[in-house]
Structures are given as structure tokens and as C-alpha cells.
Simulated scan of single mutants.
Amino acid sequence: MSRTWLHAMLARLTAPPGASAPVPDRPAAAERLAARIAARAWRRSGVDAETAADIRAKAAAAIAAGVPLGFAVPFGGYKGPRQPAAPHIDWAELFWIAHLRAYAETLAALHAPGVVISLSYFHGVLGGINRLPQSDQDRYIQGLRALLAHYSDARIRFELIDLSALFGGPAGAVAAIERRYDELRRSGAEPPGPALRSAARNVMHDHASEAVIREAALRCLAMESLEERRRFNKFGPRIQITHIRGASLSLHLGSCATSIHQPWVGTGVLEGDGAGGWRPRIVNGGAIQPGAWVEVAHKLQGLSPALGRIGLLQEGASD
């Protein structure tokens, strides 16, 4: 790839979004809007009957009230400590939010009030789960907040929602998680394999014993089961978006056009498409060899030191 072509590509990827879709003259029928929300081009798995009914009901409610369509994306709120960019955002977050922005534009073309996508997380509680320093999460959220502002406008808005506020702050959220953790532990609950593997990826290296990983996985399950969290993300007016197959009442979308890898525990790269071109992709950063990185310059470089370089991978080289 020539440097000129690379810089031109990155300029396109980092450009401010264009104007939101034209405002429709009249409200779309709820069935039509629901079909657009669940369009196959964006989904990575099927929509079950319960989720389809939930989408239709929430689309109809937004139309009737004349309010934006609401979506919730539960996420970690940190950069996985084993990713090269940690604790900062990198191209994975940029590709992710740009992809969600493009998705939202298809919906704003039918729904005049627009779209609000809420990224929900717990601030200040990860030290008790993954042993993550608070300063690391603060750096990550600072960069992500600026990125969300870049991709927001009057009709398509991204927002960060700190769910610990529902408990009076981080201390209250930690206490609620610990109560639920104790309930799970006393009941003999065991974290399933995916939860253990996730904890093994996310616990800080210095603390990654088998016992600590198991405790982290169980505490994460406790956090995810809190009624307040579930009410915000899926049992209220918002449609939940997930990047993991199989979640109930959830729309399974890609994290970018080519990936389902969760961005906060991945690294954004440009991958060869096998035909001489390159495409954005989110991969496990541990798979990137040192010689694959190239230095770059663009308008969003100041949001994160990790945006000053990008990995180039050949097709099939990603993890």
C-alpha cells in the first residue's frame, strides 16, 4: 500500500460524518421501521420471535411519542489490558462507532426524530472485578467521549451512560454487585466457559491466577444480572444491541462491517481483502507482529496516542 493511498483512506475513515439522512415527510409505519432496524445487512444472527416483537413494540412507541429511537449497547467501559493500545481507544473504537453511525443513518431516513445510541457501563467498579486501575478507565472514557462527539449530530446522537449513578455512585454499585456475587456463590453457581475465558482475557496480568479469574467471572455475571442494568438496556424503552450471539431480547450486530469482535477487547487494523484492497477489521491485538505497524497522521490523532499508528495485516493473518 502506498503512503499516499493509505493517508487518503485514513482521511476518509476519520472525516466527520456527513449530514444526517433527509428528514422524512411523514412517519414510517411501525412494521417498516422494525424491518429496517432488524435488516439482514447489519445483523450477524437471526432475530427470534420475542426479540422481533420487542423491536416492533419499541419502534411503534417511538413513532407514537415522536421521540428518537433508543438503543442501548452494554460494554466494558475500558480497554482490555492485553491490547497494544491499553488503556486508550484505538482504531477498533473508531471502526465500531463509525459502523453504528452508518446503521443509525438508515433508521433516521425513516424516523424524523432520529436515533440515540446509549453506551452503558459501570464507572469505578472494575478495580474490584478485573483489578483495573481507575486511571486506566478514566483515560479510556475520555478518549471515547471525544470520539462519540465526533460522530454525533442533531438527529443521531451517541451518549455514555454510567450505570453506577443508578446506585448513588461507584461505591453503591460495588456494594450491589458484591451482594449479588455472594448470592451466586452461596447458591453454588459456576461461571460458564465463555465467562471464564472473558475474565482470563481481562484480568490484569499480575493478578491472573485461576482463583482470581473465577472470582472475576462470577462478579461479572453478578454485575450483568443486576435488575437496574437490565432495565436500562433491554426492559425499558431501548432496543439492546449486542456483539455476542445468543443474548435474549438483543439485536446481534457486527462491531464493524467485517467483525464481531468486541472493540474494547480488540484492536483495529486494516486487513488485505485478497483483491489488492484493504478493509477495516477488529482483531485480537496479540496477533499483530511488530513489523505490521505503520505511523500515520490524520485529524483525529489527538484523541489517542494509539491513533498515531495502524496495523496492516494480510488476509487471513488476523486472530
Rank of each mutant, 00 (worst) to 15 (best):
M1T: 11
R3S: 14
W5V: 14
M9E: 07
R12P: 02
P16W: 06
P17S: 06
S20Q: 03
P22Q: 10
D25N: 06
P27E: 02
P27W: 02
A29V: 02
R32Y: 02
A35P: 00
I37N: 00
I37V: 15
A38F: 00
A41N: 08
R43C: 12
S45Y: 10
S45R: 14
S45E: 14
D54G: 05
A57Q: 13
K58A: 02
A60I: 00
F71K: 08
A72L: 11
G77Y: 13
Y78F: 14
G80A: 12
P81Q: 09
P81G: 12
Q83D: 06
A86H: 15
I89V: 13
E93Q: 14
E93W: 07
W96K: 05
I97W: 09
A102E: 14
Y103L: 07
Y103W: 15
L107H: 00
L110D: 10
V125T: 15
Q137D: 04
Y140W: 09
L147V: 08
S152F: 04
A154T: 05
I161R: 12
L163N: 02
L163K: 05
A165T: 11
R179F: 01
R185P: 00
S187M: 03
G188M: 07
P191H: 03
P192E: 13
P192T: 10
M204G: 06
M204I: 10
H205K: 13
D206K: 11
D206M: 12
A208K: 15
V212H: 09
I213P: 03
E215R: 14
R219P: 01
L221C: 07
L221D: 01
M223P: 00
L226A: 06
L226H: 00
E227L: 15
R229H: 10
G236M: 04
P237Y: 02
P237L: 07
T242C: 01
I244N: 05
S248P: 10
L249V: 09
C256Q: 05
C256E: 03
A257E: 10
A257W: 12
G266P: 03
G268H: 05
A275L: 11
P280L: 11
G285W: 04
A287I: 09
P290E: 05
A292P: 00
A297E: 12
A297L: 07
L300H: 02
Q301N: 01
G302V: 09
G302S: 15
L303C: 09
S304Y: 03
A306K: 13
L307Y: 05
R309N: 03
R309F: 11
R309P: 04
I310T: 07
G311C: 04
L312D: 04
S318F: 07
D319W: 15
